[in-house]
Design a protein around this nucleic acid. Structure first.
Lengths: 167, 167
DNA sequence: CGTGAAACCGTCGCCCC
DNA sequence: GGGGCGACGGTTTCACG
């Protein structure tokens, strides 16, 4: 239980702001059932403790001209910590790479990439990714379509656990 | 070029709101260099045309008690459209599954999952995912750590393209 | 797209439990 | 400790040029 103290109102605030991060504070306070000032104080605390890391507009990548989404599975030659870190630093510097997660198993990293078109991605793939130091192999898979794309976490499960805990 | 009309100011608005979705409209208008009313009109238009799909608070999953993040690679027995759709409907109904992308290649779907602990995930894995109709095989990889986790798209690339187009 | 005005909201201090 | 009330300043959002 990592959460120092999260009462039902805090969880509701997080769930509401995850669903609509631009909601006004009065609307939020109405939804969670308290008045605006304490609601704002809670939001500030959640931001300061890092439970809320930020707010982002969710843009339509395809409409914006990013037609291609790709997952790249990367295996390295060496898994020594310095080499892992070196690859992560590289990945952070590539704009096409939106996410880079280190995994267990044979695949060392999975990269989620967004690109305007295939040729831009393939230039990146051949000139940057596979050409990088220590990269042993890269397998790529194009995203055909997105069936689900929800940000964040399922608060429903938190609520169920909290309810179960106070029997 | 899917964007009907996106001038540099619209792109700036999108980039700014992707970076901070809770910025006030006056702050946004200041950053993009116009006054507040037209700025708000542009934001509304971007929302109505679906270029902005929504706003979300970015919550700290680990601090919130979701210690486990997993990628699941799913292969189906049948890739007929009805069967693909049926699986997608299933996936949309599982709270632990945050993203479900259909891929090309041998892996039919990749699922990004968030779970409070391993046992919760493994219950889901055995009782729901691998037990589902038409699922041939599931390979899972635990996320050890996140090197990069940026939402949305790299606007830098859009800007570079726009600049290159008007030589 | 900018200006002005009105309504609303974010925010603070204070009082209450 | 946290929640509510009231007030000020800033913001949102009109109508209009």
């Amino acid at each position: 239980m990592p959460s120092l103290k999260l009462d039902p109102i805090d969880r509701k605030i997080l769930a509401e702001l995850q669903g609509d991060g631009r909601m006004t504070n009065v609307e939020l306070s109405r939804r969670v059932g308290i008045s605006a000032p304490p609601c704002l104080r809670r939001v500030r605390t959640l931001e300061e403790t890092g439970l809320i890391k930020g707010y982002h507009a969710d843009v339509n990548a395809r409409e914006l001209g990013f037609e291609v989404q790709v997952f790249a599975m990367v295996s390295l030659k060496s898994q020594a910590e310095v080499d892992l870190s070196a690859f992560e630093t590289l990945a952070r510097g590539w704009p096409l790479v939106r996410e880079c997660h280190m995994l267990n198993g044979e695949i060392d990293f999975i990269l989620k990439c967004a690109s305007p078109d295939l040729s831009t991605f393939q230039t990146f793939l051949t000139e940057d990714l596979t050409a990088a130091d220590n990269v042993a192999s890269v397998k790529t898979s194009l995203v055909i379509r997105n069936a689900k794309d929800e940000p964040g976490v399922p608060f429903e499960i938190l609520e169920a656990r909290a309810a179960a805990e106070e029997e």
